[in-house]
Design a protein around this nucleic acid. Structure first.
Lengths: 217, 217
DNA sequence: TACGCAATATTGTATGACAAAATAGTATGC
DNA sequence: GCATACTATTTTGTCATACAATATTGCGTA
């Protein structure tokens, strides 16, 4: 009787596979063969199956009976849908962030915004884009609205590939910076209505940009 | 060698367990022991585990390592959060429903509204409440916005227990009927803005009602 | 009664089995 | 040469069983 080679836990496998999908290591429509994943993750087929089930529920994976799982492809139309829903949710969290932010948190996002402005002025749009993502994440935390936050998280993971593009669209970064400034100012001023409006305006512009990019992947 | 008693499929188990949670057969905080479920569902433990993983991802079940799964308890605060998000999503679908509805579909919701009015006048608030749920579901279908629809579905399943109460709140059914009439009229008139406004108004009232009921379960 | 320890129950994970279905590969007929 | 039918292989869906890790329970003792 030999040792049962204890592999990774379900949760570790979940995170690893999820990351691989979100960061593009695994491409959309790519087949996810259970035994291959099991070997790669160092886990059993059973564990892999439950992980795939979770990821399906989350919308990152598609499973067809007897035909296995594959990375879900997000169409351009769906990316727009997702962004519309995001807009609605981000309005909620912007409102709550304005109401519930602590002084420390406000310092933090103002600092972050300053950093983003620097990067923008340096022409480093990739870093700027990262700051953008971090800003939205931070505001979500500040809102303390766990339901909206959770949904936003899953939605964001579904269309990361579309995120960069909108910011890199020609002439889109400067308005983007102004819009983010307005959002931060509204939150700093604890003006819930203004925060929601600023966020809505920002995301409706992102939405327009995305809609115009019919040449999507 | 005897026949391997082929039980129910994962999906059947998923639906059965989900229904049991949503309709209250299984109470919140109730422990879900894997072997018990396996026997009840006529499936193996492995199948039950993947089903539980899916339901956890969906927010209907909570799992704690080495302590098993239990039906998730939705606090009053969370019910309000969920309703807020629902409001945002229902505004989206109301807008799209107004834009995309076919004549047949409009006939259908007008008919449904008539039925609800009857039930209301008969004082049959339980049937009225069912009609209410059906109306919202139908509008969601009409919107053809699969992302918003999917999220709404999961959210609704999480707080069904709170749904009835708001309608049965004293003096709440008559305004509810008027609000629903306004929504249907806006959609029938293909007025997206009006539909969104009517829906927002309706749900903000439901939200207020729920907020006032601090005596929730 | 409170505490500590042993007995029990339950979960987390792995393995191996096998039927069902899909897919790939091969032979056959034209 | 190509379409078609049949067979082999792969992969999935499900089950049973095993066992370590942990949680829970129950009991005996101070």
């Amino acid at each position: 009787m030999e040792m049962q080679s204890q592999g990774y836990t379900e949760d570790e496998c979940y995170r690893k596979l999820r990351t691989a999908i979100v960061d593009g290591t695994l491409m959309p429509a790519q087949r996810l063969v259970e035994m291959d994943l099991a070997r790669w993750l160092g886990a059993s087929r059973a564990t892999v199956r439950t992980v795939l089930a979770r990821l399906e529920q989350e919308g990152l994976v598609e499973r067809e009976r007897y035909r296995g799982a594959r990375v879900r492809h997000v169409s351009h139309e769906e990316a727009v849908e997702i962004l519309e829903v995001r807009m609605a949710l981000e309005c909620i969290i912007a409102r709550y962030a304005a109401e519930r932010a602590t002084d420390d948190e406000i310092d933090k996002i103002e600092e972050l915004l300053g950093w983003m402005r620097e990067k923008f002025e340096e022409g480093d749009l990739v870093s700027y884009s990262e700051g953008n993502a971090r800003l939205h994440r931070t505001i979500a935390e500040m809102s303390r609205h766990s339901t909206a936050r959770r949904l936003l998280d899953t939605l964001n993971s579904q269309n990361v590939r579309y995120q960069y593009r909108t910011i890199l669209a020609p002439g889109r970064s400067h308005p983007s910076l102004l819009e983010h400034t307005a959002i931060v100012q509204a939150i700093a001023g604890r003006d819930a209505d203004a925060a929601e409006q600023a966020m809505r305006k920002h995301l409706s512009h992102v939405c327009d940009t995305l809609r115009k990019m019919r040449s999507g992947p």
